[in-house]
Amino acid sequence: MFLTTKRIIKAGFINFWRNSFVSLASILVMTITLFVIGSLIFANAMMMATLEQIRDRVDINVYFITTAAEVDILEFGDELEGLEEVEKVEFVSREQALEEFRARRAGDAIEMQALDELDDNPLQSRLRVKATDPTHYEFIAGYIDGQVNEVTTDGVPIIAKINFQENRAMIDSLTSIIASVETFGFFLTLALIAASILITFNTVRLAIYTARDEISVMRLVGASYSYIRGPFVFEGIMYGAIAGIITLVLFYPLTLWMGVPSEQFFGGGINVFTYYVENFASIFLTIMGSGIALGVVSSFLAVKKYLRM
């Protein structure tokens, strides 16, 4: 067993070296495939970060009358947070709302002057509700609507307004964009991976096609199927491993170069270089694993065809 494995590995190395042109072509094609797979990992991460940002911007606000007691608002907030459709509820007091407003409109002297002339803070406290999924906002808004007369301070209903209907068009549109982008991204990824795998498979098959006569001779001299197949599969492993290393090395300067622009382009999304460095272990395993698996499966199937002849 050890002797056979040693001979298979040695023969794989020798074939790889002596068929250097075929090896080089196979590695090149496999590098392109792995590069596509790696790029899809980064594209997917950037897409997810962007979608997360969009999701983060979508929420509904429940405004309360100025005389509402904070304790009643917070109690209602806790009730909402208990719903499984709700991810989090954030309370914004009247004072906080005023501070935010002042910060936002600091450059508008007229508005600031008008605000100063008022005796009382005109802004309402509110609950900012974030759903676990944008499709849940309709349910949450309906639930709050149903509670309008139940949430009271001293028997007076305190919910003044829910901004869902005003934001509905935007929420629906964003929900639909997110779903479309995810679906499109999924199928695009699938199509690109399938195309890359097919191209790689055909290249390896072509490389082994040139050795079909050798395979028939090997059979005739009494070599077992596993002994014939072994060196080709080992060559496939080498194609995958070398292509994987080349791809990983190429990604380093590329992501370094694209890091800052990608961060700016996606408005504070992700820096691809940071993502590459932080997730190197999983990217390494994915790229090397895909390369080696592609090499093994392609060569195994290609040799199998000629062993049957």
Partner: peptide, 13 residues
């Protein structure tokens, strides 16, 4: 298949 391999080792071509 394994017997065939052994058989072919007994036949030179």
């Amino acid at each position: 298949r394994d017997e065939l391999t052994l058989y072919r080792q007994r036949v030179g071509t």
